[in-house]
Each structure stands twice: as structure tokens, then as C-alpha cells.
Simulated assay, not measured.
Amino acid sequence: MPTLIGSVQRALRLLEAAGSHSGGAPAKQLAREAGLPLPTAYHLLRTLTHEGYLRRQSGVFVLGDAAGRLAGGGLQQKRRSMILDSLAHFRDTVGAPVYFAVFREGEIEIVGVSDTPANPVCEEWADVRATGHAHAIGQCLLGQLDEKTRKDYYERHPVESITPYTVRDVHALEQRIGSRERTQPVIERQEYALGTVCAAIPITVGDIAATVAISLPLHQEERLLSAVDRLRSEVGALLSTLSFSISI
């Protein structure tokens, strides 16, 4: 194991050295900058080239496509961390679990959640993607879409009651969506989960529909509206962070 770890460390030093030269560098130079014997450097360079992390062209080594994918993965992780940090801030501010979701490629996607043992998230007992009509997150996202996109969603995920409080049919849901201003929060009481109330705030970044939402147990319902107002002000202050991270 120590030998394997050492090989990985040496390979990473070579990648770092190659990455510092936009036009590439020859093996001898990379070996010198990485502090490696030339035979060791040659062996690792051949391996890294074979795996796509480096490319050899005109006698020099440059970063390959696989190295680019590694960098992209790091950026994606950074974006996700930014989202989770923002959600944790919202959670602590309003004292409730917070959700961040988007409508992407025809489906509802929960990007991140943040809760605490004292304020846990609502249990996903029915597929959130298929029950957008029944929860605040879904209703908020659907309300930001055009009629054709919503119709396509309904065809794939029929509107049906999952609790005694769920909207009964597409007509009733469309009436509800049409009567609400697009910028207003969506309030939902026990439509998705008995004993739970939820609210979702619409966020639109470019052509992507998104929402930040909270949930509370039914016995704390009196806190919901004030928590939503506080959340709206906080989201406005941190919208740039979420806007940058929304493409995760």
C-alpha cells in the first residue's frame, strides 16, 4: 500500500507540472519539476498517457481529456458545496429544514436538502419526481413552466390524490396555478404528507425553474408564514450564489 500511495503521489506531481505549462513540456523538464528520477518519470508518463490524463504531441506532454474531467468534477463539487452551505444558512435562519430543487429535462430534481435532528426533513414516502402536483416544491416549479411543458409532465405523471388533502385533478391544479402570481410563494398543507405543511419560493435563473422550500410539522403551522417571509429575504441576499450553482 505505501508503494501504491507513493506512485499516486508521484503521478499527481507530474500532472501538476504538466498543467503549469499551457503549451506542454518535455519529459526531462517534467521529471525535474516533479523531483523524480527520469526512468520513474518515463514510466508514469507512459501510464498517464495511456489512461488519457496526458497527451504527447510534438515531443511534449500536455493535459488530456481525462484530466479535464477531473477538473470538471472538482468544479461540480465546489458548486454543490456552495449550495449546501447556503441551505444550511437558510435552515439556521428560519429554524426549519430547507430544500433546493429545479425542473430539469422534464423532471423535478431535488438538488440539496439541509436539516437537523431537531428539525428533520419530510420523509419521501412517495416519489417526489412523480408527485409534483401534491407538494409545494412541485407546484412551485410547475407554476413557472409554460402550459405545454406542464401538460407533458402531467401525461407522464398523472394527477391523483395521495392524501385526503391532495388536489383532485389536473383542472383543479391548473386553476390553482393560474390564480397565483408567479413570484408568490406556494403554501401546501398535508397534500403530500399527513402532519406536514410546506412552502416553496420560486426562483427563475435564465430558462431554469428553481425553488427553495421549507417544511414544518402541522402543530407548528403558525410559524410557516413568518418563516417564509424570512426565507424570501435571505434567498434574495444569496441569490447570486444559487444562480452560479444552479447548473450543478
Rank of each mutant, 00 (worst) to 15 (best):
V94L: 11
H157Y: 15
A130R: 15
R232E: 14
R55D: 02
T166C: 07
A237Q: 14
Y42A: 08
G236I: 06
M82S: 10
K78M: 06
K148V: 10
I203A: 05
H219E: 11
K148E: 11
H21V: 04
K148T: 09
A101R: 03
S161I: 09
S240I: 08
E160C: 11
G73R: 01
D115P: 01
H89R: 13
A96Y: 00
I5M: 12
R182H: 12
T49E: 13
L38K: 08
V102I: 10
F100R: 01
C122N: 11
L75H: 09
R56W: 00
I83M: 09
E160G: 08
T241H: 06
P164K: 13
Y165P: 04
V60Q: 02
Q9Y: 07
L224V: 11
H171S: 15
A237E: 14
A31Q: 02
A227T: 03
Q175G: 12
S7W: 05
V205I: 13
N119G: 04
S58D: 13
G73Q: 02
Q77N: 08
S7R: 15
W125H: 13
L142H: 10
A227V: 01
Q29L: 14
T196Y: 07
H219Y: 12
V228I: 11
G59R: 03
F90Y: 13
A27P: 07
A199R: 02
I162Q: 12
E188A: 15
H89Q: 10
Q144G: 09
G72E: 14
P217L: 12
I108G: 05
G68T: 00
